[in-house]
Design a binder for these strands. Sequence first.
DNA 1: TCTATATAGATGCAATTGCATTTATTGTCA
DNA 2: TGACAATAAATGCAATTGCATCTATATAGA
Lengths: 152, 152
Amino acid sequence: MTEKATPSPEAIKAWARLMRVSRQLVESAEDALKASGLPPLAWYDVLHELAEAGEGGLRPFQLIERTLFAQYNISRLLARLEADGLVEKLPVADDGRGQTIRITAKGRETRRRMWAVYGRSIAELVGARLSPEELNTLSALLGRLRHPPAGD
Amino acid sequence: MTEKATPSPEAIKAWARLMRVSRQLVESAEDALKASGLPPLAWYDVLHELAEAGEGGLRPFQLIERTLFAQYNISRLLARLEADGLVEKLPVADDGRGQTIRITAKGRETRRRMWAVYGRSIAELVGARLSPEELNTLSALLGRLRHPPAGD
DNA sequence: TCTATATAGATGCAATTGCATTTATTGTCA
DNA sequence: TGACAATAAATGCAATTGCATCTATATAGA
């Protein structure tokens, strides 16, 4: 057996840092959005995926794959986005169970305004604290912690 | 001005990785605890701090500083822990507003059983994927993203 | 074709979180 | 001292999350 039941001190420290820092960063970014009267990060994640998907839109289950949100979570998040007019739900021709979600013009505009704030947070919290080389090192190390591990 | 409104591609990628990986890891660890019929990570965080604090215990506001939980969150979490007999609340001699939280024997035992599962998750998810040197590099880079930045 | 199984998505209900406010006590200073 | 600001912790209420289940449609196999 190659598994270890007890983690090394190095692993514990890296884990602890990862937990703490990620929570801090999320909180900072959320605070910045809130302070600007904008929706929470979760909305950005979905709007971002939909904006990248273009006119074809995405099925809810595709959003689940891309964002890691739970199924019920996406279902309700999309309901809120639709209620706000940021996305629209279209029937799918060849699958009566499903629907296609497409971002609206208002949704694109909201995403743009969110990015103005969110992007600034990223620049300040991460971009300003590590050099490009260090950022690449960090990305590579984090990539190896993914499931499945990232190639680049 | 030295601030940048738009983050570099390297910063965006590192941020995205950090967000995604930390969510995945938390989810994996939570799932493992759940599968063993154990309480969620938040409980571990508090029990851990209280166990380290020893017999003297900690004031709720100290737990807030150490764990990043919101005040109302700690207040209710402690109520649940107390209801489960994992901590006890003691009056403070020189401050009638406050209380001291102390971990109980049952609390220590629960923490021990949680660590058996949580520690294994850390070992598998992080310890087994990066070398000790790489883990140190990761810790150092993450430390620079903290507020305030870590010295070590 | 008919039935069983799998997939897509929604939803009822309980638990938790977030926000704002409240209660109680302590500290400050005119 | 007495009024006022600050701190510690709890809580009412709305929003969100988690869990389990449900509905509807699609697919596979006898």
